[in-house]
Design a protein around this nucleic acid. Structure first.
Length: 492
RNA sequence: GGUCCCAUCGUCUAGGGGUUAGGACACCGCCCUUUCACGGCGGCGGCAGGGGUUCAAAUCCCCUUGGGACUACCA
């Protein structure tokens, strides 16, 4: 497989937001281009105006950028072989389709959608293989002229050879043989003047000098059509690489929306880091020669190779993504992580928007306390809520009471702690630890029996970062206030 | 129904004639420890089945089974 200066394209259809499967395709495209010093091209295949979603293009571009997959040619950046929106290339497709008709390799078809539907229904009922019955293939030139002159809507269909076979080549799977008898005369140009995927994709890949077509496995069955088209035009086909499909984690069919997040934007909103998503996607269908697991985009581009892509379908299970996310969250410098968490905290009303510098500084100071405890950015609010609020709701009595102890016992412990903390000159972690351990000793208690009620009193929960860090970050005033609040609860 | 693709722990995978079948995630246990996490150590767990070929098969071939994709004037 020659891999010098590969020209690869990611060609999404703007019928929805960027799907996670599309993101992996784009990633492999990008990787191959970067690995070989070639170009990564973004082409928008907006040939289906029925399913067109207006803001899909913006979402696709934003998601790719968020992932760090920048394109060398395409929307916003231009390029020599544009336009990169297929809707702006209609004349081109029409010309090539007519050329095929003139060469007797395609023909006009005037069949109505109703006739086609009835045909399909009949074939299904009889358990026959479905496909166009080539009704219009035998129309005489005079009949065609008449129909056209009458303004009858028509499509242009490819004249698939009736016998013989076509060998479609996949770089991973090798040669796949398809009998022409099982292929029908597929549509090239629709009656609205737009091309079908088959036509547009072959023409554009050729004109844009694409060397490698990386796309989903669902295209395998269509690939003989594409080889047939390359042959009909007399063009050299590119290398085809069909990526294994993402299966739903429950083992029922391919990944779809009912299995949770499938759009890149949803992962972003859930608090996943692009670094983690990239690393996760990289290893879902590709494996390095060694056993390295953590990859930056740059490292991946260095290590990537088409040969090590897997062909078997992949279950899209999120467990490992969460692990990757935790890893990358822990790797981030506090200021960086704080900046990434800020939107989530603002959304939850824990920080104002815009966020004043002193609050941002406090956030950065808090980050190290929770950094190794969150797996998603969205968990930051729950992790920091008691730091970012002046007051917390009084904890439940049962939560405060020390294990195998009584309310009075617990209150006594908290009173002792409160008294000790009132006189601590500096509220540093070291001083706090020294003081609390001294109280524990004087009470003749075990550390846990003293620390836990204090923890609950000042945070309202039993799972928190280290107690001394929490107290220091909270500050004397809030600590004492919350301690007194808890004592009140226990006295009731 | 037809065409095509795929098959190693629950999941992602390494291995592609001779391996005690390796790793990671998840799960479980232990250690660390004031809780939770992080980290460390250990454990559980797999070549879908059947035939060949071969001195030798997870590995090559065939069949079965299972899973999946496609079967539009959608991509």
């Amino acid at each position: 497989m020659v891999q010098t200066g590969a020209r690869v394209r990611f060609a999404p259809s703007p019928t929805g937001y960027l799907h996670i499967g599309g993101a992996r395709t784009a990633l492999y495209d990008w990787l191959l281009a970067r690995k070989t010093g070639g170009q990564f091209i973004l082409r928008i295949e907006d040939t289906d105006r029925n399913r067109y979603v207006p803001d899909a293009v913006d979402d696709i571009k934003a998601s790719l950028r968020w992932l760090g997959l920048d394109w060398d040619e395409g929307p916003d950046v231009g390029g020599e072989v544009g336009p990169y929106f297929q809707s702006e290339r209609l004349e081109l497709y029409k010309r090539y389709a007519e050329e095929l008709v003139a060469a007797d390799k395609a023909y006009y078809c005037f069949c109505t959608p109703e006739r086609l539907a009835a045909l399909r229904e009949e074939q299904e009922a009889r358990k026959q293989p479905s496909g166009y019955d080539r009704y219009c293939r035998s129309l005489t030139p005079a009949e065609v002229e008449k129909l056209k002159a009458d303004g009858t809507p028509y499509v242009i269909r490819f004249k698939t050879p009736l016998t013989g076979q076509t060998r479609a080549v996949d770089a991973l799977r090798g040669e796949m043989v398809f009998d022409h008898a099982t292929l029908d005369d597929f549509v090239l140009l629709k009656s609205d003047g737009f091309p079908t995927y088959h036509l547009a994709c072959v023409i554009d890949d050729h004109l844009m000098k694409i060397t490698h077509v990386i796309r989903g496995e669902e295209w395998i069955v269509s690939s003989p059509r594409h080889f047939l088209l390359y042959q009909a035009f007399g063009w050299e086909p590119p290398v085809f690489v069909h990526l294994p499909i993402f299966l739903s984690p429950d083992g029922k069919g391919k990944l779809s929306k009912r299995h949770g997040a499938t759009g890149v934007r949803e992962f972003r909103e859930k608090g996943y880091l692009p670094e983690a998503l990239i690393n996760f996607l990289l290893l879902l269908g590709w494996h390095p020669a060694g056993d390295q697991e953590l990859f930056t985009l740059e490292e991946a581009a260095e290590a990537f190779s088409l040969e090590r892509i897997n062909v078997s379908p992949v279950s899209f299970s999120l467990e490992k993504l969460d692990w990757f996310n935790g890893i990358y969250i822990r790797k981030l410098p506090p200021a960086d992580l704080a900046a990434r968490c800020l939107p989530f905290l603002q959304k939850d009303g824990l920080l104002p928007d815009p966020c004043p510098p002193e609050k941002m500084e406090y956030l950065i100071r808090l980050i190290p306390l929770v950094q190794e405890r969150i797996k998603l950015l969205s968990e930051i609010s729950a992790a920091l809520s008691y730091f970012l609020q002046d007051e917390i709701a009084p904890p439940a009595k049962e939560l405060l009471i020390v294990k195998k102890g009584t309310a009075e016992e617990t209150a006594a412990i908290l009173r002792a702690v409160t008294a000790a903390l009132e006189t601590v000159p500096d509220f540093s972690e070291a001083a706090l630890e020294e003081t609390l351990r001294a109280v524990t000793a004087s009470l003749n208690e075990k550390p846990g029996r003293v620390f836990m009620p204090v923890r609950v009193a000042v945070t309202g929960t039993t799972t928190t970062p280290g107690l001394f860090e929490v107290l220091a970050a909270l500050g004397k005033e809030r600590v004492l206030q919350r301690l007194r609040q808890a004592i009140t609860v226990l006295e009731q």
